[in-house]
Design a protein around this nucleic acid. Structure first.
Lengths: 118, 118
DNA sequence: ACAACATATGAGTATATGTTCATATGTTCA
DNA sequence: TGAACATATGAACATATACTCATATGTTGT
C-alpha cells in the first residue's frame, strides 16, 4: 500500500466534467491564491458593491461602514489580483470590476450556498 | 457627499449579468466563508485530487506528501463546508466531492488565471 | 505655491489559521 | 479480547493577515 502514483492525474469523469485536464500543482497554488482573495468578507463586499456600479474609495468606505485605509488596503489586493481596476477621475479613484469571471465565480458560490440550505 | 444609501443594492447590469439580485450582507459573509475554504493550497489540492477519483485519507496524504493529521484536519473543514463527503469502507474513510459546483468554481478560477496570463 | 481634499502606504498590533505532536476513537481479524 | 491498522481530535506553536494610526503622495482650484 505504498505505491506512490505521482505525476499526471487523469480526470476520469467522462460526462459533465467541466475540467478537461487536472491542473498541475503550481497552477493549484495560483488557484488557492485567487480564492484567498475572495475569502475575506471585506473584499467580497467590495466586489458585490462594484457589481452594480463603479465606485470611488470614499463611497465604498461609506457603504461598507469602514475606514478609508482599510478599504484602500483591500482594493490594492483586489487590484493586484486583476479582479478590480481603477481609473482616476479628478481627485477620486474610481474602481470597477476587471473580469467577468468575478460574477460567474460569485454566482457559483451562491448556488452552492443555496444548494446546501435545502 | 454624505448621503448613506444603505439597504437593497440593485444590480444595474441588464445583459450578461449572472446575478439577478445582489446578495444581502449576511449572504456575503457566507460567501466569503465558502471561498476561504477554497483559499488554501492544501485544501485546493485535496479537491483537485478528488476531482478524478475518490480517495482515502492515507492515499491523499501520500499524493500530497503531507502528514495524515494535516490532511484529516483539512478534510474536516472541507466536509463541514459540504464540499466533500465521506463513506466508510472497512477501516478506511473514502472521500469524494459532494457538490458539482466545486468543479464549476474551479473551472472559473482557472479561466480567470489563464485570462490574466495573456 | 498653498490649502483642501482624496487616496495610498508603512509600521504596529491583535487575531485567525495551518501544521505538528501526542493521543483518542473506531474497525478488522486472529 | 487484544493487536494492528486507519482516521479523528485537541493542544501548542509559528505564521499570515486584516485593521488602525500616522503620514506620504497626488490632484484641484485659488
Amino acid at each position: 500500500m505504498n505505491d506512490k502514483e505521482n505525476g499526471a492525474i487523469p480526470c476520469e469523469q467522462d460526462d459533465g466534467c467541466v475540467i478537461s485536464e487536472l491542473p498541475d500543482t503550481e497552477t493549484l497554488y495560483d488557484l488557492a491564491e485567487l480564492f484567498k482573495v475572495f475569502g475575506d468578507s471585506t473584499r467580497i463586499r467590495i466586489l458585490a458593491a462594484l457589481m452594480g456600479k463603479e465606485m470611488c474609495v470614499y463611497h465604498l468606505s461609506q457603504e461598507l461602514e469602514m475606514g478609508q485605509s482599510a478599504i484602500s488596503h483591500q482594493l490594492r489586493v483586489l487590484r493586484s489580483s486583476g479582479l478590480v481596476k481603477a481609473t482616476r477621475n479628478g481627485k477620486e479613484m474610481v474602481y470597477s470590476l476587471d473580469d467577468d469571471h468575478v460574477k460567474t465565480i460569485f454566482a457559483q458560490g451562491l448556488e452552492h450556498i443555496e444548494h446546501k440550505k435545502n
